[in-house]
Nucleic acid binder design. Structure first.
Lengths: 155, 155
DNA sequence: TTATCTGCAAAATATTTGCAAAGCA
DNA sequence: TGCTTTGCAAATATTTTGCAGATAA
């Protein structure tokens, strides 16, 4: 019999010092932009490049969009962040965790909640690889609906 | 005990006459562009607006890109097609089926195989709605990896 | 005949590239 | 000092909008 799955809501992500240590280990420089972008991404919700730019400007930090796109490409390549795409087709970024995560996207307020579902799709992935000879490397699973707050508002 | 899941590979989609009847029922006109776009979408693989434009031009049919985008928005609104987004952030379109479908995206040859997985995520969706008060309306589940052909090439 | 559909030009939005200047170690 | 990072301008890609003219029923 299958165990019921475990849902973990991702709340706070990571100790900033841990990321800094990892960057130093990889021989990367520690710049203001890099530190500030990582601070913003240390959050349970993924952000797009332009959302990051906007959030930086809230803190009086003006960074060119090109720099942000390049910094995100850099962090992606260093395996420090993930890229996720939802139905709107915009690329969003979040800190990489040990466990693969999924998302609950509210169709009303557009808030995104990051969750970890344990023991999910294991059987299906095995079946797909066995029956269709498709070697699965990764998957994306996102749920769309109404968050607690919005579903109460709608009725 | 949970039954093993059933995988259905979507091969041919639908009788074109069925779509035409549905369009007539909805009071829509039958135009050359509409017919041709639906012919292209009658395929196990979703296509982007510009891929459709390209495929039309292969058949000597020249249609403005604006028309294609508008036609897709029209068919979407009439519930005849689905919009799907993969990791590249490009919107792709496919004929709507009774059953929700998922996709196997080959990271090497970029072929997309449409599949129907029965009895998948039912338990997880129930748990998410009960434990997190998130009312799920829809989900997207896509697998990325190597198709049979490409995984053989890689070794 | 008339509501629907289409093409063209231009705009909006997200992302990328080249090059020269600035800055961290 | 030298390599990495940054800003600016311009290019590219996808998608959207306004308007005038064409077309299916």
């Amino acid at each position: 019999m299958q165990l019921s799955c475990i849902i973990i809501i991702v709340m706070k992500i990571i100790n900033p010092l841990e990321v800094e240590r990892k960057l130093k280990l990889l021989g990367c420089r520690q710049t203001k932009t890099r530190t500030e972008i990582l601070k913003i991404l240390n959050c349970p919700q993924p952000f797009s490049a332009l959302e990051i730019k906007q959030r930086l400007s809230y803190c009086q930090i003006v960074v060119n969009k090109t720099t942000i796109y390049r910094e995100l490409a850099f962090l992606l390549q260093k395996n420090i962040i993930n890229e996720v795409v939802f139905k709107d087709g915009i690329k969003r970024y979040e800190l990489k965790l040990e466990k693969h995560s999924h998302h609950l996207v509210c169709l009303s307020c557009h808030q995104i909640k990051r969750v970890v579902l344990e023991n999910v799709l294991i059987k299906q992935e095995k079946q797909i690889s066995q029956q269709l000879n498709f070697k699965i490397i990764d998957h994306s699973l996102e749920f769309y609906g109404l968050c607690d707050c919005c579903s109460k508002k709608h009725f």
